[in-house]
Design a protein around this nucleic acid. Structure first.
Lengths: 139, 139
DNA sequence: ACCTTATAGAAAATCATTTTCTACAACGGA
DNA sequence: TCCGTTGTAGAAAATGATTTTCTATAAGGT
């Protein structure tokens, strides 16, 4: 999924991709890690250009609405990660906040929620720990 | 896990179980559903006795800290559910907010996160949908 | 019973998020 | 390409959930 596709998806939902949003989007996509809105704001400011915090909030809201971003709740903080793909899971490094996608998914079958309980609309499966490079960091 | 065990666990962490906290705890445990702090506050006020909202926040924080409550992020709202057991997963009804625990867990084996990625400290697997009774409600 | 330490709850403070507002930019049609 | 419509940027203000503060009180150990 590249910029064109993202643009089209946003467009279908009547969101316009301005240069400001594009700057935030580029930063967000490239980073491959999770951010709180304020963190992403700082990150964009440093690397790309100065944009308003409101703009960051609005893009994150838009991306979440069209299914391109996922919020995580960790230690009471809400982090967002860019999620271009349909259904997948995550490995989240609690140290460097890097996020990796895992595509293989056997959870639905593996768990097989009983009909007596209800009907599953969707599920979430995420792994948290330390990524390889964070582990190697401390000798 | 009964009240005695909860009391002991809180005690180990130097939390005291006062009558106010006990009222909130009873409500929370009995309900078997998820609440935002404000919702739980209302619920306790109606059914048990009047307690301060601050007290509700503090109990939820304490329970989360000792591993007896789990927060869910749904539509931007943070909901808490009482989680007495070690490792398990959830079925969350998005309509009535009822929560059921699922104990069988093959996720770790089923997914088998690659060593190259990192080391998993814990994982979360939750199912969202409509529970049986909500489904039957509308004929 | 006494002493230390945690708690209740109201009130105030904090701070993340949302709303408001105005000038401006993007898109689509002529 | 120009124009009208509609969404957007960003600062500033408002909102509202959550946290902190404070004082009297209660809990639990000794």
């Amino acid at each position: 999924m590249d910029l064109k596709d993202i643009q089209q998806l946003l467009h279908e939902h009547k969101f316009r991709l301005t240069k400001e949003r594009e700057a935030v989007l580029m930063a967000f996509v490239d980073a491959r890690r999770m951010f709180t809105p304020a963190q992403l704001h700082d990150y964009v400011k440093e690397r790309y250009e100065r944009v308003g915090l409101t703009t960051v909030y609005r893009l994150l809201e838009a991306l979440t609405k069209v299914g391109l971003a996922t919020p995580f709740l960790i230690d009471g903080e809400i982090y967002y990660t860019f999620c271009p793909n349909q259904h997948h899971h995550h490995f989240v490094c609690l140290q460097c906040h890097q996020v990796k996608e895992l595509f293989q998914c056997n959870a639905q079958q593996a768990m097989d929620v009983d009909q007596k309980i209800g009907t599953v609309a969707y599920h979430k499966l995420d792994f948290f720990g330390r990524c390889r490079s964070c582990e190697e960091e401390k000798h």
